[in-house]
Nucleic acid binder design. Structure first.
Ligand SMILES: [Mn+2]
Ligand SMILES: [Mn+2]
Ligand SMILES: [Mn+2]
Ligand SMILES: [Mn+2]
Lengths: 154, 154
DNA sequence: TCCTAAAGTTAGCCATGGCTAATCTTCTAT
DNA sequence: ATAGAAGATTAGCCATGGCTAACTTTAGGA
């Protein structure tokens, strides 16, 4: 999976190959890429959960308007969610979360709310807080989330 | 480019089609998708700028190890950066930033540093701060960035 | 000088996640 | 009861951004 760039010899270029700082930076970028893979799943299960709460059911057309994408895009993403065990569904019927999906939704909603609360606490308006939280939530480590919560306590 | 979902008629399901909250949420998701499009460009120009500073030149092999990807991946992404006017290069030679690329690098570095400083200010360790900043930096609006700076002043 | 290892490139594979166009199903209102 | 609208699906397109394998070029050291 990884390349073994740990030759101490002929480091043509200074301060690059596999230095501790380099590796740490690479880890950061890899974490970002990993977060992007989970992102759609997280946003979808959270939205589906909200729609079931608020509307009684989660339909592709509503997911599409909330996500700002077309219905075929929703259908395609729902197929992945089903494949990966987060939802169950039958053709032309509304969508249900599996236990796995519902659990993930709760975790995501919790995370989301902490971030929004933290941004509001910093003095931002509600719209900006919601707007930015939608992206930030996927890149906040547990440590940082805890720091946000701690700041809210004070 | 956009679909016109502003039918006030027959909203079969309550509280969904084009309601103000729904549209605001959609705007948030759209902003996240847009951020993801600029992300690679931003991270690459910032890294290239750093490598030129620290090593005297930016070579694909070093970009690869810092980004945690393979060299062919770097080459492909560099082709896009060149196509879009952020870098210039000749085959088998190291990479240079255009004015556009260098300006963007400076903006990104500035942003990056503010976020790291803010996370450190919250009490996080340096590694976590750098790690999380790598993702967060692409999802912080100007308003939120300003709020971070304000918090640092105090 | 020239051989070889490292660096760079190319080709080609795959998954993701957007989109439009066209079709099919469901549901509602007459 | 049924026609038409709204919703759902399918098919097929495209760009992105990972990867491996194979090849070419460059450059350092014997
Ligand atoms: Mn992101
Ligand atoms: Mn989100
Ligand atoms: Mn969310
Ligand atoms: Mn980044």
């Amino acid at each position: 999976m990884e390349s073994n760039n740990d030759k101490p010899s002929t480091p043509t270029n200074a301060g690059s190959t596999g230095s501790p700082g380099t590796q740490a930076q690479a880890k950061g970028f890899q974490a970002v890429r990993k977060a992007h893979q989970s992102e759609i799943v997280e946003d979808y299960v959270e939205l589906i959960s909200d729609l079931i709460e608020q509307c009684g059911e989660a339909r592709p057309v509503d997911i599409a308007s909330h996500m700002g994408v077309t219905q075929p895009t929703v259908v395609k993403n729902l197929a992945r969610l089903q494949r990966d065990g987060f939802i169950t569904r039958e053709k032309y019927r509304s969508i249900f979360l599996t236990k796995t999906g519902a659990d993930l939704a709760n975790i995501c909603r919790h995370r989301h709310r902490i971030i929004v609360a933290f941004l509001l606490h910093l003095g931002l308006d509600a719209e900006t807080a919601e707007h930015d939280a939608e992206g930030l939530e996927h890149h906040v480590s547990n440590k940082t989330l805890a720091a946000f919560e701690a700041a809210l306590e004070k």
